[in-house]
């Protein structure tokens, strides 16, 4: 096996590249964590719900004859029926088609922004804290700079120019402006972890700095990172809605759960189907992410008392 540095991770699961080997080698951390996660019923339920949501979002458009932008003039504000399963909205678009389309967008935006923002935060924060000195000063200067920028304004200005990049560019923008505070917290946690003896032990064994961050620092702040990421998921979906409202981000005729909820709110009482399907899926999504996050957290923390929930 080569001893080249593993590239530092961007994701949440600090499991390293190890896989179970048929040889009688004892299970590594990845396997142990996975095993603990699989034993956690609620977390598993969350994961299954998440999977089903993805299935709905990406298979849904193929099972309905309607497209999300098609306007059915014969059915305005129609209640759910065999024709339009979840009814239609005030201009006659199929709510099911729109909701699954919105779900697609929101799932990807929410998860991607959370993973990118938390990953960036842990990379920058851990590097700043671990290396200290000029690396620290430069990175923190950069973080502070981003913090004082009115991010909303910047997104508003840049976003139209990035339209050609599609909404992936928009995901990037949301992530770029959502990681700074987390990074500061990660940095200060790293500063105190760096003084711990087990980090010193790893250094004396000749483990490279990035590998120390990956293997020892990040797992020990994983609880915080996971909580932060789950909050980011909901936050990303919400700020996407706000931005869409002001004309950036997901633009009509395209939809997201956020825009659907925003436009359906006023009709929530009179035409509940325009609102509750989208809102319900959003709640389900955030809930599932939280369950998975909790499960991951407990799986990574060997002292967590499981089964007490």
């Amino acid at each position: 096996m080569s001893t080249a540095l593993e590239t530092p991770p961007e994701g949440l699961e600090p499991q390293g590249p190890e896989k179970a080997v048929p040889d009688k080698a004892p299970a590594g951390r990845g396997t142990v964590v996975l095993r603990r996660f699989l034993r956690d019923r609620t977390a598993l339920a969350g994961a299954v719900v998440l999977l089903l949501l993805f299935l709905l979002a990406f298979a849904g458009p193929y099972v309905t004859p309607w497209s999300y932008s098609h306007i059915d003039y014969t059915a305005l504000r129609a209640a759910p029926s065999a024709d339009h399963w979840w009814g239609t909205n005030r201009i006659g678009q199929d709510v099911f088609a729109q909701t699954v389309r919105g779900l697609q967008k929101s799932l990807v935006i929410g998860l991607l922004v959370a993973v990118l923002a938390t990953g960036l935060a842990s990379l920058v924060g851990a590097c700043a804290g671990y290396f200290g000195g000029w690396t620290d000063r430069l990175l923190m200067f950069f973080v502070d700079l981003l913090l004082v920028f009115p991010s909303f304004l910047v997104i508003a200005i840049i976003s139209p120019r990035l339209r050609s990049g599609g909404w992936f560019a928009f995901v990037g923008l949301l992530a770029v402006f959502g990681w700074m505070i987390t990074a500061r917290v990660v940095r200060s946690m790293t500063l105190s972890l760096k003084e711990r003896e087990f980090v010193r032990a790893a250094r004396f064994m000749g483990v490279g700095p990035f590998r120390i961050i990956w293997r020892h620092i990040l797992p020990n702040i994983a609880s915080f990172l996971i909580i932060d990421a789950t909050i980011q998921v909901g936050g990303a979906v919400m700020s996407e809605t706000a931005l869409s409202y002001f004309g950036f981000g997901v633009q009509p005729p395209d939809v997201s759960l956020g825009t659907l909820i925003a436009s359906g709110t006023s009709a929530a009482v009179t035409y509940p189907w325009m609102f509750f399907f989208a809102a319900g899926l959003l709640v389900l999504f955030v809930l599932a992410v939280n369950l998975v996050g909790d499960g991951l957290r407990d799986a990574l923390d060997p002292t967590a008392r499981r089964g007490t929930r």
Binding site: M1, T3, G28, E197, A201, G206, N220
Partner: peptide, 20 residues
């Protein structure tokens, strides 16, 4: 303090080896 609380013992013991 000198053992990473979030690493299984097997990985801890193997760390210098893997580094080598």
């Amino acid at each position: 303090a000198s053992l990473d609380p979030r690493m299984p013992v097997g990985d801890i013991v193997a760390e210098p080896l893997r580094t080598q």
